[in-house]
């Protein structure tokens, strides 16, 4: 059981997440794609922690931190999406040019 398969799967999932962030116009779908990228990063952390036989569990603990930060990010992000939808009755990220100079 080598680590390469997990790394390739993580790269594929990360690429799909980047594609979703760049292509989707629904703000909630953009946040879902960000979650996909974070899951890919967690796969890499846990796979390397298992490969190195890390008795300090650094990979696992960093995966836990990533999950925590992702939860905080989702809370704030979805609150912002709801606020934007309340003000403009649309969650399309292409129409959000309020801060464009």
């Amino acid at each position: 059981m080598t680590v390469n398969q997990f790394l390739i799967l993580g790269a594929l999932l990360f690429s799909l997440g980047v594609y979703g962030v760049l292509v989707r116009r629904n703000a909630v779908a953009v946040l879902l794609s960000i979650e996909l990228m974070l899951a890919a990063v967690n796969i890499n952390l846990v796979a390397f922690g298992s490969l190195l036989g890390d008795t300090l569990h650094t990979g696992h603990i960093f995966a836990l931190f990533v999950i925590t930060v992702a939860a905080a990010e989702v809370g704030i992000g979805l609150a912002i999406v709801i606020l934007i939808f309340r003000n403009r009755s649309s969650a399309n990220v292409d129409e959000l040019d309020l801060m464009k100079w």
């Binding site: 922690g49 298992s50 696992h60 995966a63 836990l64």
Partner: peptide
């Protein structure tokens, strides 16, 4: 499932 196969049971449960 990949977490469990890598020995990270607690991370899998949290996930």
């Amino acid at each position: 499932v990949f977490y469990v196969s890598n020995g990270a049971q607690f991370v899998a449960a949290v996930q």
